[in-house]
Design a protein around this nucleic acid. Sequence first.
DNA 1: ACCTGAACACCGTTCAAGT
DNA 2: ACCTGAACACCGTTCAAGT
Lengths: 208, 208
Amino acid sequence: MDHQDVEREGAPQSAPPSARPLRADAQRNIDTLLQAAGAVFAEAGVDAPVREIATRAGVGVGTVYRHFPLRSDLIAAVFRRDIDACADAAPALAAAHGPFDALAKWMDCYVALVATKRGLAKALHSDEPAYKGFPAYRDQRLEPALRELLEAATANGEVRSDVKPVELLDAVSNLCMSALPGSSERAARMVRVLLDGLRYDAGPAASR
Amino acid sequence: MDHQDVEREGAPQSAPPSARPLRADAQRNIDTLLQAAGAVFAEAGVDAPVREIATRAGVGVGTVYRHFPLRSDLIAAVFRRDIDACADAAPALAAAHGPFDALAKWMDCYVALVATKRGLAKALHSDEPAYKGFPAYRDQRLEPALRELLEAATANGEVRSDVKPVELLDAVSNLCMSALPGSSERAARMVRVLLDGLRYDAGPAASR
DNA sequence: ACCTGAACACCGTTCAAGT
DNA sequence: ACCTGAACACCGTTCAAGT
């Protein structure tokens, strides 16, 4: 499990590539906010009231909106590490397993990521403006990782070639939608069925 | 396409099995409300403001809550015909096609049902109390229909036997979650992949 | 620069008063 | 019996006033 700290461009609204440091109190508030949000998300889901997060962090609501204009910014900030870890796990899996197995194992990581955090899946697919941009960050990190795995499996003739990485990412997080907070078991099973579907007919023309 | 009008027990809260008729104005309000709700759902989704529906129907909000205590009651009432039509389509499909094809074609109906109506899928999987009981009605009607098709396909050795009808119903409506209002095309494709997964390994022990 | 919190808009839900 | 709509609770979001 390696994870190189690559600099990303679309990254945190709290620390653009080359920006002068924030004022001390601002930086402190952001840290406290992230911690509070993480705790609240864990016990009440990602669409818990903003006021609750603000109170927990001991700041005014205005401060939350100042640093995180969109709820999705807060969510992305809280789960960035997890998302990155998932993306970065791909190369190791590809090296250690056959193409399809690597794909399947990576999907387990993704399912765990999405299904474990209460309501994360819902946030990924909400059409409310407050969640806008969150799927974008996810795709930006996860899409390249998955594409690699998918192409390897396709090249190996193990899976069909007419399903795009982003479609799969979307389908899988959709399947995690009704998973209960703790158990991702049921979702994981359905994802395995979906993956089996990828290799049912590896040819491009899918019958019917 | 036949559809016998079977009497259901868990049915409409507006007309229990053996109840004296409603007062004329009450019945009229219910009809208007259903019509208004249908229109509003179509253009603004199933979680449009209650007030909008009430206004459209020319009644007070209290009247909406009197007849439809839960939002899901209103949704179920509005889409009952569509749900029943989908369920009742199963026998004809089973008679006209081979087991797997019948299953696939029925799924197309279900996908159309769920993906077409804006936000219907979301309502099916929401954990908010206002939507409670809606999945129950859907399952009650659709589960038996699907089970029939699934068992036939299983008996014919075309699909694996370790996926329950209700799981499939759930997985498919989840896949329809991020479908745009009009097009169910993308969702339909993923559902087809899922179905292919069902027949990838028809044996019970689905590898690892 | 940054923070605070009152204020506003909006929505679900109830219930006292009416008919 | 049934209807109405004011009233309440709750939540997102903004912005004038403060430091």
